[in-house]
């Protein structure tokens, strides 16, 4: 009987201990979970504000780039065309009717071209241009400017049925594209650039390949200079913010390929 009572006492004691341990464990878990939830929420908010910041920055940079393009277009193209028209008008001679008619026609064509170019410029000046034209339309317009400048031969290939994604994501993608193009023009000394935009059910693939001098990606990554590769890191950071993946493949003297993959989730 005594053995029985002792055993029951041990059983009860161990049982109480077990209950205590389980209770403490569950309370500890609930508190830890709440802390994790709060941390996660904070991280999410930070990411959201970072996203908004990048979005705003991208918009400003696109506007700056647009203004730069406009100034260049006015100086190199419209200005030249109008100067030629002015020159034509200035050299008109009423006494030579046949030549006069030719010069009037030529001046009318030149002014017409200037008006057409101005219309095109007005379109790109609109801040909602990317939202209206879509990513493919915006890239096509950007390439048209590059082609006109004569710096590069640019080809655009669109594969699959184009679909519109989140306008904010398109804006950031477009800004990344502009940065890549600026890098090619400034540093690659390339003659040709090829842009492929591929749409599938789940993925948007953008590949930008040039035939420029290329660079050693390892050197950029290993460089201790904070400014070195900053642009590339910046592009990668922007891509990450929209859940896209940006990869750069480059071989010295054999060109560079930038690939952006964006999952098209609903």
């Amino acid at each position: 009987m005594e053995v029985n009572s002792e055993n029951i006492l041990v059983f009860v004691l161990i049982g109480c201990l077990l209950v205590c341990v389980l209770s403490v464990f569950i309370v500890f878990f609930v508190l830890s979970y709440r802390k994790k939830q709060a941390d996660f929420m904070l991280e999410k908010q930070q990411l959201q504000s970072q996203y908004q910041e990048i979005l705003l920055q991208s918009q400003i940079e696109i506007q700056e780039q647009t203004l730069h393009n406009i100034s260049q277009e006015i100086h190199d193209n419209i200005g030249q065309v109008l100067s030629l028209a002015k020159l034509n008008i200035g050299t008109m001679d009423i006494n030579q009717p046949s030549q006069l008619q030719e010069k009037i026609n030529c001046s009318r064509d030149l002014v017409g071209k200037a008006i057409q170019d101005l219309r095109q410029l007005a379109k790109t000046m609109n801040t909602t241009f990317i939202t209206e034209a879509g990513l493919v339309g915006a890239i096509e317009a950007e390439l048209e400017i590059v082609r006109k400048s004569g710096v590069l031969l640019a080809h655009l290939y669109v594969e699959g049925q184009p679909v519109r994604t989140d306008p904010q994501k398109e804006l950031i993608l477009f800004r990344i594209f502009q940065e890549v193009m600026t890098n090619i023009i400034k540093h690659a000394t390339a003659e040709k650039v090829e842009i492929r935009i591929g749409f599938s059910e789940e993925l948007l693939n953008i590949t930008i390949s040039d035939n420029g001098k290329g660079f050693d990606t390892a050197t950029i990554n290993a460089s201790e200079k904070p400014a070195s590769g900053l642009g590339l890191r910046n592009m990668q950071h922007r891509a990450r913010l929209i859940d896209a993946n940006l990869s750069i493949t480059s071989i010295p003297e054999k060109g560079t390929t930038v690939a952006i993959r964006l999952p098209l989730t609903t």
């Binding site: 077990l18 389980l22 464990f25 569950i26 878990f29 609930v30 830890s32 979970y33 709440r34 994790k36 939830q37 996660f40 929420m41």
Partner: peptide, 29 residues
């Protein structure tokens, strides 16, 4: 794992939390 991947809904509304608590306490006993 629940601590590694916290959900943004209250624990009280998470069925798996109740299930797991029940399993832990019942099978410990």
């Amino acid at each position: 794992e629940m601590l590694q991947y916290p959900l943004q809904i209250s624990l009280v509304r998470q069925s798996t939390f109740w299930f797991n608590c029940a399993v832990l306490v019942f099978f410990c006993t």
